[in-house]
Every structure is written in C-alpha cells, then in structure tokens.
Design a protein around this nucleic acid. Structure first.
Lengths: 115, 115
DNA sequence: GCGGTTGACAACCATAAGGTTGATTATTAT
DNA sequence: ATAATAATCAACCTTATGGTTGTCAACCGC
C-alpha cells in the first residue's frame, strides 16, 4: 500500500465524508453513532471511513462503556501544512522559501525522485 | 467521480510519484519525457499521473514542437492551504480561528454534514 | 438472564486506481 | 519518403476503495 505518512494523510483527506468527520471532531470527541447520524450511509461504512482516518493517524478511538469515542489528532495535519507550506511561495511570488524546500528534498527526502 | 476541488486535489497529492512530479515542476517547466526519466516506470504511466494532476488543476500541459511541456499551477494548493489553515489552530492552542471556520462551515459550506 | 444498542468484522460487489504492453498520431531529422 | 522520437490512447490485469448486508461480541437496563 501507500505507507508513507503524506500519502496516507492526503489519501484520507481526499474524501468529503472523511473531511466532514474531521470537521465534526474538531468541535470535540464523538461516538461512532453520533458521527454517523448526519450521513446517508450505514454505520459500518462510517466505521470504515473512521478506520481510514485512524490508520492515517488523524483520529484516535477509545472505548468507554459501550461507546467508541473518536478524537482528532492534529499531527498529520501539521505534516500536510509543512508540505504545502513549501509551495506557498509559488503564490506569494517569493521563491526563496521554495528553493530552500527543494534543496532540502535533494538532501534528505527519500521521496524525491531518484536521479 | 469525486468532483469537488478539495477531493480531487487531495487525491492527486496522495501519491508520492505525483508529489515528486510537482516538486520537479516547482523548479520549472519540463517535458513528459524529462519528467518520466527519474522514475522506474513507463512514460505511459507517468503520462497518466500527469493527467491526474492536470485534472486536479495542478498542472497545465501545452504542446511545443513534438514535446509536451508541463507547468505547475498553484491554485488548488492555495485551496489546500486554506483548508488546512482552518485546522492550524489545533496545534497552536488557539481555538478562535477554528471556531470561525466551523461557524463558516455551518453557514455556507455545501460539504458540511447535513444535520 | 433477556432484549436492545453499539459498533466492529467478514464476505461480497461494483467501480476506480496504478501499472503494463501494443498501436497510433505528430513531429523532426536524414 | 523513411525512420526515429515524443507522447497519448486503448485494452487489459491486479489490487484498492467505498459501499452493502449479515453475524457476532460487548455492554447496558431492566
């Protein structure tokens, strides 16, 4: 599969249902049932979406009595922010920042295309 | 399929090959052949990846003589930046910004879960 | 203990995604 | 005109994704 953090995170965020789940969780923790209620699909489907988010490290699930509560985890979003931040220069007409990023890519990033 | 801009963009970014292509294009325009050279896959496969990026509005393709040159388009990245920016508050312990975003979601965003 | 909730899990299905190879179209060079 | 290069297209294959339904386990409230 796509095992790297960025791919997992971007993939998790590429679905509107999952982004809506995150938006709800940004308000505060919620059970799977509460999370599923607004959507026109089975709770099993929502549970699957939550698994994708969990797998990407974007949420945590912890059981309390019979309910399974989910909480948001910001870590991967920070990575996304850092990644897109490197390209921010593109629309700010300030190319230094991007050059720095690309230099760093060349140096350390395993994801850079191998020449 | 997934027709909204954010889903298309996140989806396009969820592949390491495509992110590497973007990183290369951030330096400047390049032909499909040049873009494909570092990768251990057929140019047809790279061409497909480029089509995904193009479909997400992240690049443009324009033919010049027999070459097909690609250029980066920052627009969708701006949208990503805005989206993740709303969550930035989560790791900055400043919840006002996020509250504003969620309020806005409630008001206008078609993607918010329908209650 | 019994019945109702909660939610995960498994099997299944349809479609999409990521890759291959082979054929096709433009364009350039000889 | 012929040959070589550039790159898309089409068909195909394999695996992943997003959904369904049904079963099962755990946890309440009686």
């Amino acid at each position: 599969m796509e095992q790297d953090v960025l791919s997992l995170t971007f993939g998790a965020l590429s679905d509107p249902t999952r982004r809506a789940l995150l938006a709800r969780l940004a308000i505060g923790e919620a059970s799977v049932g509460e999370l599923a209620q607004p959507f026109d699909m089975s709770t099993a489907a929502v549970s699957k979406h939550l698994k994708v988010l969990e797998n990407a490290g974007l949420i945590n699930r912890h059981k309390r009595s019979q309910y399974n509560y989910c909480t948001l985890e910001a870590g991967p979003l920070k990575d996304i922010d850092r990644w897109v931040g490197a390209y921010r220069a593109l629309w700010h007409e300030n190319l230094e920042q991007l050059d720095d990023y690309l230099a760093e890519l060349q140096r350390v990033d395993p994801e850079a295309p191998k020449q």
